[in-house]
Nucleic acid binder design. Sequence first.
RNA 1: CGGGGCGUGGCGCAGUUUGGUAGCGCGCUUGCUUUGGGAGCAAGAUGUCGCAGGUUCAAAUCCUGUCGCCCCGACCA
Length: 590
Amino acid sequence: MTTFLRMSQLYAPTLKETPSDAELVSHQLLLRAGFMRKSATGMYSYLPLGYRVIKKVENIVREEMDAIGSQEILMPILQPAELWHESGRWDDYGPELMRMVDRHERSMCLGPTHEEIITALVRNELRSYKQLPCSLYQIQDKFRDEIRPRFGLMRSREFVMKDAYSFHDSQESLEQTYADMSHAYERICERLCLDYRPVQADSGQIGGSVTCEYHALAPAGEAELVSCSCGYAANTEVAESSPQPTEFPETELRKVETPNVHTIAELAEFLECPESSTVKAMLGKDEDGKPVVLFVPGDYELNELKAQRSVPGYTLMDDEEIEAAGLPKGSIGSVGLPEGVRIGADRSLQNIEHWVVGANEDGYHYVGAKQGRDFTVDFWADLSTAQEGNACPECGKPMTLTRGIEVAQVFQLGTKYSETMGAVYSDEDGVDKPFIMGCYGVGISRSMQAVAEQHNDEYGLIWPASIAPAHVCVLPLTVGDDEVQPAAEKLAADLAEIGLEVVLDDRDERPGVKFAEADLIGWPLQIIVGKRGLANGEYEMKNRRTGEKFAMSFADFDEALELARQDRTPADEWLRNTAGVGGIDEIESI
RNA sequence: CGGGGCGUGGCGCAGUUUGGUAGCGCGCUUGCUUUGGGAGCAAGAUGUCGCAGGUUCAAAUCCUGUCGCCCCGACCA
């Protein structure tokens, strides 16, 4: 029997006041509206409303995975260290891996991702090229011991994730599945009504070469992106930068006394030149601990990921190490560096002949330092972090800087795990070959908050119908009234019968409380049943997103119900046709 | 890991400087009134002041330790 929820029974403790420890609107609203509660740092309990949304997001992801032939499985969260030793990640993954020891002193970890487990799972039983390609996925909790969990579900230590893995006997086959997954992810983002971008990115700890992140655009996002109107978008971790350093007007090497000048801003002010005329030096060390100084234009930042690509194992030195190397922090430059210090520089610096740099002596800088005459650069590379206005590498137009919430990522892994873990299949000639693999993740819980971050207003959350905790909330304004209450109960039952998810606010609360909470929770459609409307023979509908209200006569309403019964119209279509409450279309029309 | 801050009824906070009977708002319970945008009046319940030591006639308040939580930083070169 179809039925509906009753607010009087629903465990949805709402807060009038904004929780002081939540920063993001989405975090504040999910707490205030009673969708979730924090159980400990980076760990959340989903309450009925939040869990309903989570399950809806999961189901959208399931449908899209199933549609491209990926099969759902469920692997253990708890994983033995041996498998991680096999892949080498027990040592490589670092402190983010939640490790533990069982009563037999065996090392274990809580899975942050499942490449090891799944590779071990298939390696003995996926044996022939005839069984390929094969794609498997699961939805479950993941664990990552984040340095600093924050922003609610955005960066938590335990979170819900969908992770899929595919196995192939050729790069072409991998590329096919990778493309299928990418399209599936686009559909998922669209069904979640996210304003999103596929973004070029770094593959991080997962490994592999080709990868793409899906970001929900939001100023509160932790990732910085550059994007272009032509569709190109990249994480600034990897985005090609195009600084335009400017010449300082002096061509002869001259040592300038610069008392108390340590930052680029101070230097530019002291010399009365733009920051782009100065050159910033960053002292680091390579994998052998040997010093390397990298130079970028003064108005740009060194990009550590790019630095690591040019100098394997590159890490910046801390203050003590810089001191130990005998160089003055804040006055490091390219002229007169000690023997054995390698020099790398951002390519853009080839465009200026004379540099303004530190003199490697506290309180002094050089102007007019000429490459070749006064110093030699060992290698040139793209080392700086892209900024607003940099040229798009695809079309050359200036790009804009935006921020994004990474909700998903796809990777072409290649044979990284299959080789180290000995996962092979037999090809047509009976020769054993390692699987070519791909992996694909969607942050389910993070996506819920990303939607909340993009869809809210001063009154509260505004859920798209596709993942709302319920489609409709029926608000009888006077509970106990012998006309209003039965009318509302019947209305709720009728709507539930045609397949809508309905909530009846049957609490004996004042109208103001009901309105405020309905808005806060963000049901897509509210139907208000009050004496005033009943006397006129109509219900009052309110679209949460547009705020639009309109009256619907009993006759029209019954007709719409009857049509829905006959046509078996899906709930979302009914919502759109009858109440004008839509998903993507509506959002795009705003 | 470094810096800053916070732990007081279910929630949000004051009280701590200067030690002296633990308070306010919201919520909760009961009653009456009210009923189209977070009601009014009245009565009521709820605290080992994070925990453990110490100083003191006396500790939420001072001291030491400890646990938990939040924010910022971890790119001055």
